[in-house]
Simulated scan of single mutants.
Amino acid sequence: MAQRMLSLVRSTVAGLPPMTRADAVRVQGVGALVLDVREPAAFAAGHLPGSVNIAADDDVCFCVLRDALLPSGVDVVVAGPAGIAARAAELLADHAPVVGHVADPGRGAVSRRVAGVERAVARQVLDVRSEGPVVDGAVRIPVADVLGRLAELRPDVATAVLDTDGRASSAVASLLRACGFGDVSEIVEVAVVPRPRLRLLASA
């Protein structure tokens, strides 16, 4: 009881019902989505299982990822510190109903973030960038198209999601896990090795 009360006191987002982690899990079970709005590194260190990460510290990035990955109309529980959660709730107002706030998402699950040179451990590499060179062997699906093209991906093989700055990769990787993909990691940096130029030899 004391732990529950402490968790509720920490939730000070005006107009949102405070929830414990147990409350959030319960509403997840009836179709709500837990949206963790902390930055990707904090999310990776620990979060509620099945939650989706869209960082709310940048309005433009949040709205782009919200529109691409969050179905409109689904009930949302916002997870994260009160200040950033309040901003996320404002940005969700015309997109999805926010039904509660969890101040402390806990560490029930963690995300694996790997360097680009380790991407070969994944049998399926999903490149969610909209431009730039395609990584050898990767599937290029821009983040705006991910929801509509999930059927092109195999949920039963190890998957790594590649992005430039880690925001979209964290959002998409967490979405894949929430959709039942069993082994999903993120590639947070890519070592680009320039290809040697071919020298054209003039014939004698």
Rank of each mutant, 00 (worst) to 15 (best):
A191Q: 09
A178R: 12
A96W: 05
D57A: 07
M5Y: 05
V78T: 09
M5F: 01
A44V: 04
S169Y: 07
D57H: 10
V135G: 01
G46K: 12
A68H: 12
V25R: 14
G73E: 10
V64W: 02
L69C: 12
V134L: 14
S203G: 09
V102L: 01
Q3G: 01
D36I: 12
G31I: 14
L70G: 11
L16D: 07
R140P: 14
H95R: 14
V188E: 06
A86I: 05
R154M: 01
P142S: 10
V37A: 07
V27N: 09
R154W: 02
A202R: 14
A85V: 06
A22H: 02
R66A: 04
R38C: 10
L176G: 00
A168T: 02
D58C: 07
R112V: 15
V143Q: 02
D165G: 07
A22F: 00
V125G: 03
A22M: 03
A151S: 06
V77Y: 12
I54G: 10
A55R: 02
E152S: 13
P18C: 15
A82H: 04
T12D: 11
V192S: 00
L126H: 09
T159Q: 03
A55V: 07
D183F: 03
G46N: 12
V139I: 13
R26Y: 00
D59A: 15
V77N: 14
R21A: 11
L33Q: 13
A144K: 05
R87N: 15
P40H: 08
L198K: 15
